[in-house]
């Protein structure tokens, strides 16, 4: 495997929990993977399944969805919807034989800075093992 390979992980993080968790990881001086490209969304349920597809088809090696823990959504039920939609996209990937490991959902609260750093690092490793997303090179998409 190519040692030079640096994954790019498009990360949709909800403002109230996961993004704040990422902030906390930063202010706590926790090292986490530079592969994470954070995008703040007001709620993980703001993320249309098509966003995940677009990130995947545009060459993201991994796509991370971060939201509040079930029951803790700032908007009460947003993340329950997120979970269903995520399950749906994952099933679409599986049914088409695409690598659904390139999609990850994680519940990270605002106080879980260390968890954010751990998820970021572990997921980066996982993606590194998977290798580069073939969509990076395909021209017929």
């Amino acid at each position: 495997m190519n040692k030079e390979f640096t994954p790019r992980i498009t990360s949709f993080l909800c403002k109230w929990c996961s993004y704040t968790g990422a902030d906390l990881a930063g202010t706590s001086r926790l090292q986490y993977s530079t592969s994470i490209i954070p995008l703040q969304v007001m709620c993980s349920s703001r993320v249309d399944p098509v966003f995940l597809l677009k990130a995947y088809l545009s060459g993201s090696d991994g796509v991370l969805m971060g939201g509040c823990h079930p029951g803790d959504c700032h908007y009460e039920t947003g993340n329950y919807h997120t979970r269903r939609r995520f399950a749906l996209v994952k099933e679409v990937f599986d049914s088409l034989g695409l690598e659904s490991a390139r999609l990850k959902l994680s519940w990270i609260s605002a106080s879980e800075g260390p968890k954010f750093a751990r998820v970021a690092n572990e997921y980066t490793e996982e993606i590194r093992k998977l290798g580069e997303n073939p969509t990076r090179k395909s021209i017929f998409l």
């Binding site: 098509v50 597809l53 088809l57 060459g59 021209i139």
Partner: peptide
């Protein structure tokens, strides 16, 4: 990045998107 891309773009996105929207 790729030296080339398809025009119009988003052919696969359309079908995969529709799969998530209505399948």
């Amino acid at each position: 990045r790729k030296g080339a891309l398809r025009l119009p773009p988003d052919t696969m996105l359309f079908h995969m998107g529709r799969l998530t929207h209505m399948s």
